[in-house]
Amino acid sequence: MVALRHGIILQDAGVDVVLLNVDYKSEWCEYEGHKIPVLGQNGKMLEGRFDKVVATMWPTVSFLENYPNIGQRYYLVQNFETDFYEPGDILKIRANSKYSPIVPVKFITISKWCQEWLQERFGHETLYAPNGIDQSTFPHLKRDFSGKIRILIEGDCGVYYKNVDESFRITNALNPEKFEVWYMSYSAEPKSWYRVDKFLHQVPYEKVSEVYAQCHILLKTSFLESFSYPPLEMMATGGYAVVVPNDGNREYLRDNENCLLYPLGETQKAIEAIHKICVDESLRKRLYEGGLQTAKARDWEKIQGEILELYLEENRD
């Protein structure tokens, strides 16, 4: 979605934008009221020059390396994709190799954490522009804590670094008479031992804000993220977040100012944080106001100029 957002910002600025997909299933991509043509990546079926090409995940870097008629090559790095795979997986080595491509590439990122390790580990001076949120799609409202409290868990439990098991070790320990648990996952099904009152599967992104709005607290326990959107989205709707800090959320999360943080693995502290939000009205007021301010500062309209600068400034070494 971030790559698509960059695409429509460029399109609005008068740039001809095309998506190079890994398959041939679509000819057009419609997103946020925009329509972008789609081509397959097979170099044998393409002919012509691209002024700029942006790789968006490690397998797409191969196109930068193999297609000759490109003016400027970019790699939009949104995570340390090497750690998507566990030790022993050949894909871990292949992902890591793409941070040292065989052709000149300009590295850009939406995460200050990514900017740091790209410099320290690979020697790349990396351009940065912050991630944003479309506030119009995440209207806010104050939560009523007088009745049963609804906890939202989000993430694919089949992906180890999402650490969803820890979320359920926390919510399984909560009083089911006082707390209801919703689980939202696009790919994975809940495990048999999870206590889930409502499972939300493959919710379209345009409906996600409605899910947030129906919940009081988001519990997010991932330990690897380049930029973690769910806490920011929950804040934008006026909800609360209890979160494990990681390199991808420290950029905007502030403990006791816009969320409550707890250390990875210390589930009792997470339980205490949930209860604290439920009983402390002054804390809720502070987190509510801090969360809304954080979301407003990240509105795409405020940062789209920084996005354009990544791609349109000419002759940058």
Rank of each mutant, 00 (worst) to 15 (best):
H140D: 14
S228A: 14
N96D: 15
L20G: 06
P245F: 05
F227Y: 05
W113I: 09
Y161E: 07
Y183Q: 01
K106Q: 10
N66E: 15
E233G: 02
Y24G: 10
R5Q: 06
A3P: 02
G123C: 05
Y160E: 09
F223N: 11
S228D: 15
I277N: 00
S167W: 00
D83G: 04
V61Y: 03
V242F: 00
Y262V: 12
S222A: 06
E180W: 08
R169H: 15
R286D: 11
K35I: 12
A13K: 06
P101S: 07
V196R: 01
L152I: 03
E81N: 13
N256I: 14
S136R: 13
S192M: 12
L200K: 03
Y186F: 04
V54T: 07
V208I: 15
C29Q: 07
P231S: 04
L200R: 04
L200M: 09
K207R: 15
Q293C: 04
R284S: 01
D89I: 10
V2G: 11
K296Q: 14
N249E: 02
K35R: 09
P190W: 10
P263R: 15
K162W: 06
G88D: 05
M45W: 08
E301Q: 08
E272K: 08
Y262C: 03
A297Y: 06
D51A: 07
Y194T: 02
W28G: 04
G265C: 12
Y229M: 14
K44N: 14
H6L: 15
M57D: 12
E233H: 11
K25Y: 11
E30W: 05
G158W: 09
G88T: 12
N258V: 10
